[in-house]
Design a protein around this nucleic acid. Structure first.
Length: 260
DNA sequence: CTTAATGTTCCCCA
DNA sequence: TTGGGGAACATTAA
């Protein structure tokens, strides 16, 4: 479900309902989503008031009157306001007004009361300036696709938006980061901003089961230009979109428009 | 039955 | 230390 635009949409859809709500009870059932002492986590959160909710990279960060609640949605995590409990509900936050559920079939997500993982993140892609972005690219010899997936390099991009951003910039996913010209680095910087901004406007991509906190799907998937379009014609040149594996992930690109 | 899926982390090797 | 490849983690759908 979750890359930067999806997490941003979830945060926006949660904000008004969660601000100043008190957690009157919490319970957790997954040893993967909530590693360690689940009862202790529940007791830490019980009685706390949610002061604010924000996104950092792909993390949802709730600032409490005491401490912090950090949620990562993994691949299939959902936070649902007043949702219905299912066999995949692994977290229940009973609020003074309503209930917040955490559903996650694959259990790759995490619910934690500390922000150590958030502090290791690289810069926000919508905030970093061109100069700093170019400098960071130049210092890395890796292929550009796995580099953009690295959350320490840049926080928030995932498999869909890296493929879309590289297409927008005309850069091959296996291009070497340090060898990109200044002009191509600038195109990439702008392309990342454009694709993320547009995806947020369209409330994220629902390629399979992503929904926001009210169960509403996103619409950006219909505007994908390469992701999930293997064999279909490139929107620019008509060449069939190719799919390879890069950085261990399915990677979609136009072999004619994207140069190494 | 096999494969792939919006993610992260760890391990092995160069 | 950097970087690539693969596996692991759980589950579902094609």
């Amino acid at each position: 479900m979750p890359e930067l635009p999806e997490v941003e949409t979830v945060v926006r859809s949660l904000a008004a309902r969660l601000k100043d709500r008190r957690i009157v009870a919490a319970s957790f059932t997954s040893r993967f989503v909530t590693p360690g002492n689940r009862k202790r986590l529940a007791s830490i959160l019980t009685g706390r008031t949610i002061r604010s909710i924000a996104r950092r990279g792909k993390f949802i960060v709730m600032t409490l009157d005491q401490g912090t609640l950090v949620v990562h949605l993994g691949m299939t995590g959902k936070l649902l306001i007043d949702g219905v409990s299912t066999p995949h509900t692994h977290g229940v936050f009973t609020l003074d007004d309503g209930v917040l559920l955490y559903n996650d079939p694959r259990q790759f997500g995490r619910i934690e009361a500390d922000s150590r993982r958030v502090q290791k993140l690289g810069p926000e892609p919508l905030e970093i300036g061109l100069e700093e972005f170019t400098k960071r690219l130049r210092s890395r010899k890796s292929h550009v696709k796995p580099l953009l997936l690295n959350q320490k390099f840049l926080a928030g991009l995932g498999n869909i938006y890296v493929d879309e951003a590289l297409f927008g910039a005309g850069i091959h996913p296996l291009a070497t980061a340090s060898r990109l010209t200044a002009a191509r680095a600038a195109r990439l910087h702008q392309s990342i901003r454009d694709v993320l901004t547009l995806a947020i406007e369209h409330r994220g991509s629902s390629t399979s089961d992503y929904v926001d906190a009210h169960g509403q799907r996103g619409n950006f998937q219909i505007l994908h230009r390469v992701y999930g379009r293997e064999g279909e014609p490139c929107v620019n040149c008509g060449t069939p979109i190719r799919k390879i594996v890069a950085g261990g992930r399915g990677t979609h690109f136009c072999p004619k428009c994207q140069k190494r």
